[in-house]
Design a protein around this nucleic acid. Structure first.
Lengths: 215, 215
DNA sequence: GGCTAGATAGTGACTGGTTACTACCTTAGT
DNA sequence: ACTAAGGTAGTAACCAGTCACTATCTAGCC
């Protein structure tokens, strides 16, 4: 009996500060998935939790701080998922593939993430939030480039591959598919497109000798 | 003397309706590049043109109609640029490459385009605007898939390539690089990242036999 | 086990600011 | 003088953030 909350009209108010903070984050992501990041008002958040708008500002000093907390929450979850997926890989390329599909699954399970990634907050001069995302992206890219370099050392990737460029392409592939399927929502699904395009990416990585050796 | 207008305080007002419509489109794109799509107000547009806010609504019935006109303007220019670039290709893969870099150049020359592509208007239920972009994207993808199929027929692309998936990757690569460099603006440039990642993409397309044959 | 006092989550009303859009009037150009 | 572009002055809706007050919970005490 420690974690049951209905989306609307939970009959009991007065949560502890930590619980309320977490619910604000949860509800904010939920609303952002439906109506878009910039259209989520503090009034919407309060209404979704069954409290008044003023109560929101007891737990966060500003709306910007809410989005920062949301982004940190997303980062922690995503990194956990990616690390776990990579650890199960038998070799660097296998780890890469597992990370890719784990990432795709994670995004598909949190429809707000595409919206946040494209929100004006990130592309304007939002200081803290944008800096956080930059760190995530650069760290992620370095990790992918490292995996590709390992694959090259083991002869699993072609020697003349530009590992850095391939890592940029890897991340670009994810972000591009996210953007595409967000606009083409209803006609395409992220998971399906990802499953079709990843093998094409792999062909750019694998050495010519093992091209015909799927397993 | 048909196309000189200063960004602010053009001393002469009272343009013809068509000219004013075009200037609204121009100024809107200019402002969107600087401050983001959703933060461009009709007041901003008016101020940038040296007229009052009410004057804007004499030429467009609503703000949404302005964005629709902007998107149509962008589509017309982009399609013209792409068609011209493709026509100069000596073979399908060459045409693909020329289209790619022409597209990148076009986006780099119009910094508002990334913002528009990620704007809430496109990812919410914006009916007309979103439908327009969907048409552009699907048409573009079909064109790329056709080029790849031609390349396969001429032995320039590997026979087992999934042309449709590769076309999705092609577009995703553009959109992903746009998203990345928009967030990493200042640290990366779109043109440089594009130049580094496109060869990686090409390696996924080219048949093993010609892998070592750059030209 | 009941009582009280301090702590704190939540309320309600308000503010200053911004926004798309409108109706009526004025003025420039032919 | 007639037409169309622009000016003026609104309006109603919405939003983030504030503040004084109230209701509820909890710890310590007898």
């Amino acid at each position: 009996m420690s974690e049951e909350v209905a989306s609307n009209q939970s009959p009991r108010k007065r949560l502890g500060a930590d619980e309320r903070r977490e619910e604000i984050i949860r509800v904010t992501l939920e609303l952002a998935a439906k109506q878009g990041v910039d259209d989520v008002t503090t009034q919407d958040m309060a209404q979704a939790m069954g409290v008044t708008q003023g109560a929101v500002f007891r737990h966060f000093p500003s709306k910007n701080a809410i989005w920062l907390a949301v982004m940190q929450w997303v980062r922690d979850r995503l990194m956990s998922v990616l690390t776990r997926a990579a650890a199960q890989g038998h070799d660097p390329l296998d780890a890469l593939q597992r990370m890719f599909f784990a990432h795709i699954d994670f995004i598909a399970g949190h429809p707000a993430i595409p919206r946040v990634l494209m929100s004006e907050h990130l592309h304007g001069r939002s200081t803290a939030l944008r800096q956080l995302v930059i760190e995530i992206m650069l760290g992620y890219e370095a990790k992918i480039a490292g995996l590709l370099a390992d694959a090259q050392a083991q002869g699993l990737a072609r020697a003349d591959l530009d590992a850095h460029a391939a890592a940029t392409l890897y991340i670009g592939m994810i972000q591009g598919l996210v953007l595409q399927t967000s606009i083409l929502r209803g006609q395409r699904t992220l998971a399906a497109e990802a499953a079709r395009t990843f093998p094409v990416f792999l062909q750019a990585v694998r050495p010519p000798s093992t091209q015909g050796t799927p397993r």
